[in-house]
Simulated assay, not measured.
Amino acid sequence: MSRSQPPLPIWLHWLESCPSTNSWAIAHLPQLQHGDVVYTPQQTAGRGQHGRVWHSPPGVLTASFVLEHIPVAQLPVISLGAGLSVIYAVEDLLPSLQGTLRLKWSNDVLLNGRKLAGILCEATASGTLGRVVVGIGLNCRVDFEQAGLDISTIGQAISLHQVSPLVPDPLLLLDRLRHYLLQTAGLLKPEQNTGESTGLTALLPALRSRNALLGHTIIVETGSEQVTGQAAGISDRGYLLLQLPNGEVRSFVSGHILWNHEGRS
C-alpha cells in the first residue's frame, strides 16, 4: 500500500501476492490469532471446494479469516455462517442491494441467481474445539471477458461493479466481513454454564430466508453418488434436506450442488 495511506489495522496481514491466502494462513497458523485476516490483491493459485480451482482474476477480493474456539460439532456449519457474513457485509456497504443476496448451500453467495462469492473453510481440531480458516473470494470489479473466463468456467459469476456504481474499498469490506465472522464465531461458542452452543439456532431463520435452493430440483454430488431431488430446506443441524421422487427426505452434511436455475454451477 502507499506510504501516504494510514497504517493497516493490527489484525490485517497484507500480502502483495501469494498463491493462496488459505494456504498461507494454514502454514502460519501458529503465529496467527483469533480475528486475524490474510489478504492479497493478487492470488495466483486459489483453491475452491472439493479440490476445484478458484479463479482469482484482478478485481476479486481474496482473503482468509482465522476463527478460534469453535466447537467441533459446529464446524460443518461454519461455511453457512460465513455466507451470511458475506451477505450482511455487502448489504451494509451497498444498501441498494438489501434483500437481494442469497445463499446457495453450503458455500456460495448468489446475486440475481449468479455467483458473487465463494467460501472455503478449512479446520483443525484439538479435543472438542477447533480453529478454522475461512477463505472468501468476493467478485468486486472483475472483467470476466478480459480475464478470459467463459460462462462454463466461471459458473455464471457476477461482479459487484455490474450492479452498483459504487464498489466498497477492500479495507471496508474486510472490516465488515471480519465483524460478522467474529459475531458468528461468538454465537457458536459453547455457553459457559451449559457447555452447549445455541449459535446455529440463532442463525437458522436467516439461513432459511436466504436459501436460494429451496423448491428447486437439484443434484447433490457426494464422493460416491449423485442424488436428484427437490431441495426441501435446511435442517436444524444445518444439513441440506432433499426430497426424493418417492417422497423420502434425505439430509446431506456436504456435497456439490448442480442445479438449473441459471445453469449448472
Rank of each mutant, 00 (worst) to 15 (best):
S197Q: 01
E196H: 12
L32D: 14
I218Q: 00
L103K: 05
L244Y: 07
T153H: 14
I70W: 06
I70T: 13
H50E: 13
T153S: 14
L174F: 02
L174A: 01
S254H: 11
Y239I: 01
N246V: 07
L200P: 00
H69M: 13
A212S: 12
H28M: 07
N246A: 09
G48N: 14
L93M: 10
T128I: 09
V220Y: 02
N246P: 01
A232R: 07
S56W: 05
G229A: 02
D150A: 11
N211A: 03
A206V: 00
S85Y: 07
L110N: 02
G130S: 12
L187E: 05
V77G: 06
T153I: 15
D92K: 05
N139Y: 09
A231M: 08
S224N: 14
L94H: 02
C121M: 13
L213A: 05
T21M: 08
L110D: 03
G215Q: 04
S2Y: 05
W24S: 11
L61I: 11
P6C: 02
V66L: 15
G81H: 06
W11A: 03
A231T: 04
S17D: 12
V109T: 03
L181A: 08
V109Y: 00
G255D: 06
I151M: 13
G35I: 07
Q226D: 08
N107D: 10
D236L: 13
S197L: 00
R176E: 07
Q98C: 02
A185P: 03
D92P: 00
L129S: 10
T124I: 14
N107C: 06
L80G: 07
S2E: 12
S17H: 11
L200C: 02
P7Q: 06
L29E: 14
G99N: 04
A202G: 06
S254I: 02
G83A: 14
L97G: 00
G247C: 08
T222I: 08
G186A: 01
Q230S: 10
R178E: 03
A147E: 05
K189H: 14
L103I: 12
T40N: 03
L80F: 08
C18G: 04
E196A: 09
K115Q: 03
L75W: 05
G51R: 10
G215M: 01
P170R: 05
A231P: 03
S254D: 15
E68Y: 10
D36H: 15
W11G: 04
H161P: 01
L12V: 02
S64Y: 10
A117E: 05
Q192A: 15
L97F: 00
E145C: 12
D92F: 05
P76V: 11
T228F: 01
Q33I: 00
S2M: 11
L258S: 15
D143L: 07
T201V: 14
V220N: 10
Y239D: 14
S64H: 05
L84H: 08
L207K: 04
E221W: 09
C121Y: 06
K115Y: 06
V132W: 11
H161R: 09
E225C: 13
V132D: 10
P71C: 11
V133N: 07
H13I: 10
A157N: 11
I70H: 10
T201H: 13
C121R: 04
R210V: 01
F65R: 08
G99Q: 00
